[in-house]
């Protein structure tokens, strides 16, 4: 009888050990990588190619998976909030947002834990201690202003596109630009989309036909592309300066349609944002310190090696 009980004990120990070790092993294997949901404004993922590449690279390096969620329209605060909530409810381990409206109130979001990682890229939210990974938008505006100052005559009439100022990035760029530009210029006009104009090119064409300007300044991607398309369609001869990150803008910079482009390194933004979440240390606002680089390029400096690599991402 004694012997049988020993056998039973032995078998129990063995199976216990095997089960535990197989569990540990399989957990090691599928060390379930963290799921990060990235909610970007706009409905065109191609605009975010560089950002995506940076995020994918960081995901590979730090064992995380990134899911991209796009909006149905260019901008809709409520939709973005509901998407954030949806992703959190769908067991995302962290959320990265490019906020299309910086006044968005994130305190209404139900978080699964106090320390739930939320991070902004390219465009941030006003409140709370949510960090923003971006270039120094104010300085970008300033640099653009300096280019206009260097290249344009002081009597030039400058049109500034005021769309998307609800994003703090665009607002900061505007402030940086305006505070610098008034040093030389005083002839300004401000362009805005009106209600019902749901394609950006419409407002651009309207504004272009309405008044004659020498310089058009656009402070974000979709505005710049709209201005470019409008000037091509209407065959207008204006000097275009912009802050944007699109292939189209680079193309037209190359052929001289756009005079100067200020361009932030979105690959780094993507990489650093995902890395900060996955290695868990630095995504809190007080810890995020450095800004991402940006480049100021015109058609002569476009092909310089240091600019080439940023402006022309390898298409994987």
């Amino acid at each position: 009888m004694k012997r049988v009980s020993w056998i039973v004990v032995g078998v129990c120990f063995l199976s216990l050990f095997l089960i535990i070790s197989s569990q540990v092993y399989s957990e090691k294997q599928t060390k379930s990588s963290k799921q990060i949901s990235v909610i970007l404004y706009g409905n065109n993922i191609d605009r975010w190619q560089s950002l995506k590449q940076g995020m994918e690279q960081a995901g590979k390096d730090y064992e995380g998976e990134v899911n991209y969620v796009l909006m149905s329209l260019e901008h809709d605060k409520e939709e973005q909030l509901s998407l954030i909530q949806r992703e959190i409810d769908n067991h995302a381990d962290a959320v990265i947002i490019a906020a299309n409206d910086s006044s968005m109130d994130l305190s209404s979001i139900r978080l699964p834990s106090k320390k739930y990682p939320i991070l902004c890229v390219e465009s941030g939210v006003d409140n709370q201690d949510i960090a923003l990974v971006s270039a120094d938008n104010y300085k970008m505006g300033e640099s653009l202003a300096m280019e206009v100052i260097d290249h344009e005559n002081e009597i030039a009439k400058i049109a500034i596109v005021m769309n998307h100022q609800q994003r703090d990035s665009v607002k900061a760029r505007y402030e940086g630009f305006y505070n610098k530009i008034v040093e030389k210029f005083d002839n300004f006009t401000f362009w805005r989309s009106e209600k019902g104009e749901n394609r950006a090119i419409i407002f651009a064409q309207r504004e272009l036909t309405q008044e004659a300007v020498d310089v058009v300044v656009a402070l974000d991607n979709s505005s710049l592309e709209a201005v470019i398309d409008a000037t091509l369609n209407l065959n207008k001869n204006v000097k275009i300066y912009g802050i944007a990150n699109s292939d189209k803008a680079v193309y037209y910079l190359d052929n001289g349609k756009v005079k100067t482009l200020v361009y932030q390194d979105e690959f780094s933004i993507g990489y650093i944002s995902v890395k900060s979440i996955l290695d868990g240390t630095t995504y809190k606002k007080e810890k995020m310190s450095h800004y991402i680089k940006y480049h100021v390029v015109d058609d002569t400096t476009l092909y310089l090696p240091e600019n080439q690599h940023v402006l022309f991402p390898f298409v994987k």
Binding site: W6, V9, F13, L14, F17, Y25, K28
Partner: peptide, 25 residues
């Protein structure tokens, strides 16, 4: 290494219990 540890662990357990049984016998 992990695999080795497992094998060792299993063997140790088997040995211990085997020994207990045999020595009992």
């Amino acid at each position: 290494k992990f695999f080795t540890v497992i094998i060792l662990g299993v063997s140790v357990i088997v040995i211990i219990f085997g020994n207990i049984l045999i020595s009992q016998k």
